[in-house]
């Protein structure tokens, strides 16, 4: 700053300084692992008995932190995942609970130490909803300077909302992944670069939860090998579920007067739904 070397420290760093001055750098460096030294403060929250701020030596395993210090999930629930690093961190599944908490190990699992948040999730938590929650945060915190972060987080959040409403197709999921890649690689600052992390890490370990929420694609039969013509699942959807050309009232009326059974995969109803509203919009 002002042409001079500048060290920016946060409160946590400052809090470490008196202890290091008093007891020496060797003492501090002896705590922790080879690459990550000292202690780290976490805000333990979520589905654990004892929530609050904890200070642990680097390299302690997640299981020790969550089960011993946190006391595990109340009411005998099962840990599903631990989210670390704050909103732009990642979710670590229960299978990796024995990972030591240090910068390198968390990085390998697609998560970060970040702001020291640690949220425990149990079987009742839906990981897509978790990703949506954190994406909402990133969207709201975007400053709006660069395009990928400002507009990309909006689109990612919308896609996650549509997934949760069971209106997104496999194509939308592919679009979501494409957006993650775009926003991560083209954003101006760290907020945008890490904004896709909640989606990427839940996709990495809990992809099935995304797939379970997918709506059938109207142009494809529900079960590719043996198309069942009269299944309720093959009810045609508008080509683009949240198509802006569809006036708010129109899709429900179109859907309610759903085509008779047996014509489930025929095109005319869908075509009409997408073809007529534009003219209505122009007239209005």
């Amino acid at each position: 700053m002002f042409g001079q070397p500048t060290l920016i420290n946060n409160v946590e760093t400052f809090a470490c300084v008196p202890a290091i001055l008093r007891r020496g750098a060797e003492w501090f460096a002896a705590i922790g692992t080879e690459r990550s030294k000292g202690t780290k403060v976490f805000a333990l929250a979520g589905k654990v008995k004892h929530t609050g701020l904890i200070e642990v030596p680097m390299g302690m395993t997640l299981r020790e932190i969550v089960e011993d210090m946190g006391g595990g999930v109340p009411d005998g629930g099962q840990i599903k995942a631990v989210q670390t690093g704050g909103p732009s961190g990642g979710c670590i599944p229960a299978a990796h609970l024995d990972t030591p908490v240090d910068y390198e190990s968390l990085g390998r699992l697609g998560s970060i130490m970040g702001s020291g948040g640690m949220i425990v999730m149990d079987q009742q938590d839906n990981m897509v909803d978790v990703a949506r929650f954190f994406m909402e945060f990133c969207r709201d915190e975007s400053c709006g300077k660069c395009v990928p972060c400002r507009a990309g987080t909006v689109q990612m959040h919308d896609l996650l909302c549509r997934l949760l409403a069971r209106q997104a197709t496999a194509r939308d999921l592919a679009k979501l992944e494409e957006l993650c890649d775009l926003v991560r690689n083209t954003s101006l600052c760290g907020l945008g670069i890490t904004a896709p992390n909640p989606v990427l890490s839940t996709l990495r370990f809990f992809r099935q939860e995304y797939l379970d929420l997918l709506a059938p694609e109207p142009w494809k039969p529900a079960t590719p090998p043996a198309p069942s013509p009269a299944s309720a699942d093959t009810r045609p959807q508008p080509p683009h579920p949240a198509s802006p050309w569809l006036p708010k009232s129109s899709p429900s009326t179109v859907r309610k007067s759903a085509p008779p059974k047996g014509r489930a995969s025929s095109r005319p109803p869908t075509r009409r739904a997408s073809a007529s509203p534009p003219s209505a919009t122009w007239r209005a």
Binding site: V147, P148, R150, A151, G152, V154, Q155, E178, L179, L182, N185, T186
Partner: peptide, 13 residues
């Protein structure tokens, strides 16, 4: 590809 996507984001915004 990135440029096209960024432009699409601008147009959709």
């Amino acid at each position: 590809r990135y440029r096209r996507l960024l432009l699409e984001l601008l147009f959709a915004e």
